[in-house]
Write a protein that binds this DNA or RNA. Sequence first.
DNA 1: GGAATCCTTTTACATATGTTAAAAAAGACC
DNA 2: GGTCTTTTTTAACATATGTAAAAGGATTCC
Lengths: 207, 207
Amino acid sequence: MIIKETNTNMMNPEVPIYHNLQPLFQFFESFQNLSSSSKDRIASICTSVQIPKNKDLQAIGHTCRTIYFVKKGLCRIYYYKDGVDITEAFAFENSLIARVESLFTGRPSKKGIQTLEDSVFIGIASPALFDLYDQFPEIERLFRKIFEAAYVETVNRIENIQFHTAEERYNDLIKNSPDLLQRVPLKHIASYLGITQVSLSRIRAKY
Amino acid sequence: MIIKETNTNMMNPEVPIYHNLQPLFQFFESFQNLSSSSKDRIASICTSVQIPKNKDLQAIGHTCRTIYFVKKGLCRIYYYKDGVDITEAFAFENSLIARVESLFTGRPSKKGIQTLEDSVFIGIASPALFDLYDQFPEIERLFRKIFEAAYVETVNRIENIQFHTAEERYNDLIKNSPDLLQRVPLKHIASYLGITQVSLSRIRAKY
DNA sequence: GGAATCCTTTTACATATGTTAAAAAAGACC
DNA sequence: GGTCTTTTTTAACATATGTAAAAGGATTCC
């Protein structure tokens, strides 16, 4: 389900539909400044996507061809492991989310993206983005840096998973994302932590 | 300890020292072809490094400024967790290895790289490499692709750690790297799997 | 070739987490 | 407001892995 924002130019509905991309460019500029021509070209491949709570933004089985920026709301990447729903990651406002194992390989993803609140995303078409890399090395560089940072986070997460107890990981998580508890069902937090809901309940009962 | 290969031009010891970079370029070309000028410039920032068994290639505490290609031998990334030696990764012949959490952040690494056999590496100076990115977008693109692939592997590894038993992970590991058992002490395999040596021994006793 | 060191296994016990089922609590819907 | 559904907790039991200590093997080094 994709709902474009209202076109403010009623006389000519064919002109590019206006999006407020300010939060996205602000995010980009925390990595690197962009020329205005690069910004224009990026803007031309962005769409606005609005999804109600608990709906799929991207369905399991499709190849990832869009990188999303969360403008409002909250979502998760999830998949089924032996029939059990597992949350791989959460994404809050002002962050990017994509199923990189599909984005970078071109293979269909076993994972989906689902909203956990009514949400608004900016979608960046990845095939068009990769084409822009040829003309605008600074765009390629920007996304290189973004994914390098994400890679580092993932490496650090392995250490966190492998050498901390579930209790430590839970305390870490709520310390770093305090509003997660208010906004996300515990069952998703449990599977994100790699434990059962029962186990998480036991840990919480200690406090 | 860094030992350069013999300079074959005895008349002028100042010319760039010759390295056999063929295996490295073959590795690169599995990602992307390179112009000969790019290859020349990469060659100019490579050194040959020879390290005996069980020595540090890179010490804990230093910032990572070299990406290594394993030409011969075998090494591991390791660190100390509460005083216990943990292996984060192994690297065999014809693969790259770097402590990315330091390489991409510029912060000192809590991890070291240690050989597990007498080994020969090609070291790529990373500050010089990042400088080359400005002149040679194809070099930036090559390394972007290399690290994107490594990122995907790391994402997949999280799933493997979180949702498989130690026994399944052990069987996976020896299936995918059969010679690991012949070449690496079990204690390192245990910590790589996130379990104790005792636990690994129990698992092995079943077979 | 013997002593010292390092690596691996075994044993016994402790603990964290999984599994299943049921009850309690919270939220969604007419 | 009350019913239905979903979410969370609790209980009882099973199992995997951790910890500590000791013993057996293998390797290194003089």
